[in-house]
Computed example of a mutant assay.
Amino acid sequence: MSAAKHLMKRVLMMLAGYLVAILVGLIAVVAIYAALSSLPNAPAYFDLMGVSPIAAFVVPPLGMFIYFLTIVVTAPQTLIFALIAEFFSLRNAMLHMVFGAAAAAGGFFLIWPGAAEDVDLERWADIGIIAAAGLVAGLVYWLIAGRDAGFRRSLSER
């Protein structure tokens, strides 16, 4: 396989992994909120977050807007993390999961810039939930693109 062909394959795998990981991460956010809403003394808006995907299915443009917004707010940091993993051939699943959590939390701070100064404990719970969904998304990215990370080809492929 030529070097250009290998590079194109890696870029397409990164893109496919990212798009699928975003979708799985959004599903993980909903699943986490739904699970947490059943806990005693859970904030009332957890219930709303657990059933909000119904609105995305009933009104598909709303679902596409949420998906697109998530892509926009997580793309810069995810691109940086993916390029670091590719340049240094980092293939560790835990590292990709940490990258996913950091990218998701970074996207949350882009949407809500004042979240760090907010003393409300619910806001910190939201950040934790988003980061947990980022862990899941990072694992999915690793399964699709991260296991074979590296722009350089191995000796067996040359």
Rank of each mutant, 00 (worst) to 15 (best):
S2N: 12
S2V: 01
A3C: 12
H6D: 07
M8R: 14
V11L: 07
V11M: 03
M14D: 11
L15K: 02
A16K: 08
G17Y: 06
Y18V: 03
Y18E: 02
L19V: 09
I22F: 01
I22G: 03
G25S: 04
V29E: 08
V29H: 00
V30S: 05
I32F: 10
A34D: 08
A35E: 11
A35R: 09
L36P: 13
S37I: 01
S38Y: 15
S38I: 15
P40Y: 10
P40H: 04
N41S: 08
N41A: 08
A42K: 09
A42C: 12
P43K: 09
A44I: 07
F46H: 13
L48V: 13
L48D: 15
M49D: 09
V51T: 13
S52Q: 11
S52Y: 08
P53G: 01
P53R: 03
A55F: 14
A55E: 11
F57C: 08
V58L: 09
V59A: 15
P60C: 08
P60V: 04
P60Q: 09
L62D: 08
G63A: 10
M64A: 14
M64W: 11
F65V: 01
I66H: 02
Y67C: 11
L69N: 08
T70H: 03
T74P: 00
A75R: 04
A75G: 10
Q77E: 09
T78D: 15
L79S: 07
I80L: 15
I80F: 15
I84W: 12
A85I: 01
F87W: 12
F88R: 12
F88P: 03
R91P: 10
N92T: 07
N92L: 03
N92R: 02
M94N: 00
M97L: 07
M97V: 09
F99N: 06
A102K: 02
A103R: 01
A104D: 06
A105M: 14
G106T: 01
G106A: 02
G107C: 01
F108P: 00
F108T: 00
F109D: 06
L110S: 09
L110P: 00
W112T: 04
P113V: 12
G114W: 01
A115Q: 11
A116L: 15
E117A: 14
E117Y: 06
E117M: 15
L121S: 15
L121A: 15
E122N: 15
W124P: 01
A125P: 04
A125Q: 14
I127P: 03
A131K: 08
A133H: 10
L135A: 10
A137M: 05
A137N: 06
L139R: 11
L139D: 07
V140Q: 06
W142F: 11
L143F: 04
G146P: 10
G146K: 09
R147Q: 11
R147E: 05
D148F: 03
G150S: 12
R152T: 13
R152D: 15
R153W: 04
R153F: 05
S154D: 14
S154R: 11
S154Y: 06
L155S: 12
S156G: 07
E157I: 06
